[in-house]
Simulated assay, not measured.
Amino acid sequence: MPLAEGEWNLSYGPNGVHPGANLTFGTFSNGYYLLEPYEITPADTEAGDTPLPREDGIRFGQDLRTHATITFEIGVDTVDAAPTLIGRHGANLDAVSELKQAWDAEALRRRFGTTAVLRTTQGGRARLFYGRPRKCAPAGSKLTRQGYTPVVASFAVQDDSSYDDVEQLVRVDLVPPPHRGIKGPLTTPLSMVGEGSPRQPGEITVKGTRPTWPVITFHGPISQPVCEVVDRWKLSLDLTLGVGERVTIDPRPWGRTVLRNGNASVAGSLYRSSPRLADLRLPIGEHSLVLRGRDDTGTAHMTIAWRDAYAYL
């Protein structure tokens, strides 16, 4: 369900006995409203600078960034939840407990690399962040018995970027579609059968303000599959997929996997000429995608999914 302007939503799946979460907050309508505007603290820079020997100045090295943090001051309001003082107090304790439970995130914080999704709508634009909830601290307040408690909560962003809430997906077939024929009887001027397409199969446009991560899936039957972004990079696998089999390459920092049929790692099948997963990104602009490999049936294809990335909201 789309979020209203100014709303936020924290979500992640369950893990065994630990429940998932789907908490919406940020406005008066859901009882968890922001007391102050959200604050995004930029990622720190770990500078790789070194001093110049016997000279003034420094030599700039490879600078790396850590992660951004989003901080919320949330008012948990249940003043209208009950007509009695004890009813409002109990409702407020329940609401704070629900917020704390969602922010505790035990379902994912014990799993390596697993992230939550934090969605929002700001200025009419739907964006999301990948990361993990961190601190959640209710403030001691005399107003809790009246049905109101202020809470400070923070969220650590995985890679200092926000992403479009709508995922883009394209399919590229190994065999190109047949050319349209000429409609007869022939008259002047000649016309083509069918409507023209504004874009050729395999051509995509990446928007946003930053390069983004593509998730590539090869669908069999195919041998030696190759995904090529023309004039950019080429990803090749040394394996054979049967009918109904697939391999998904997920280079995103919270993924970094090459899985066959969703469970078996085949990362060792990547050719050395392929880019490192950490470098497997799509630049902003238009790109042509090509699937290569061997398939006698002509039914093999690949899909490429991505979200446009932004340096801020």
Score class of each variant (00 low, 15 high):
M1F: 10
E7W: 03
P14R: 02
N15K: 02
G16F: 04
G20R: 07
N22Q: 14
L23P: 05
T24F: 07
F25P: 01
G26W: 15
G26E: 11
T27I: 10
N30C: 14
N30L: 15
Y32Q: 10
L35F: 15
Y38S: 03
D44K: 15
E46W: 14
A47F: 09
L52H: 05
P53Q: 13
I58K: 10
R59N: 06
H67F: 13
T78P: 08
V79M: 07
P83M: 09
P83K: 06
R88T: 08
R88L: 01
R88C: 03
G90H: 05
K100S: 00
A102K: 04
R110V: 13
R110S: 09
T114W: 15
A116Y: 12
L118N: 04
T121H: 06
G123Y: 15
G124R: 07
Y130M: 11
Y130A: 03
G131K: 01
S141F: 13
K142T: 06
L143S: 08
L143D: 11
T144E: 13
G147P: 14
Y148V: 08
P150K: 14
V152T: 15
Y163E: 08
V166I: 10
I182K: 06
K183T: 09
S191D: 06
V193T: 11
G194L: 05
G196R: 15
S197P: 09
Q200G: 01
I204L: 02
I204H: 04
V206M: 05
V215T: 09
I216R: 02
F218D: 01
Q224Y: 15
V226A: 03
K234D: 08
S236P: 07
V243A: 05
T248V: 11
I249E: 03
P251C: 04
R252Y: 14
G255T: 10
G268H: 13
S269V: 03
A278W: 13
R281A: 04
R281L: 04
L282I: 04
I284L: 00
L289G: 02
D296Y: 13
T303E: 09
A305Y: 09
W306T: 07
D308K: 01
Y310N: 01
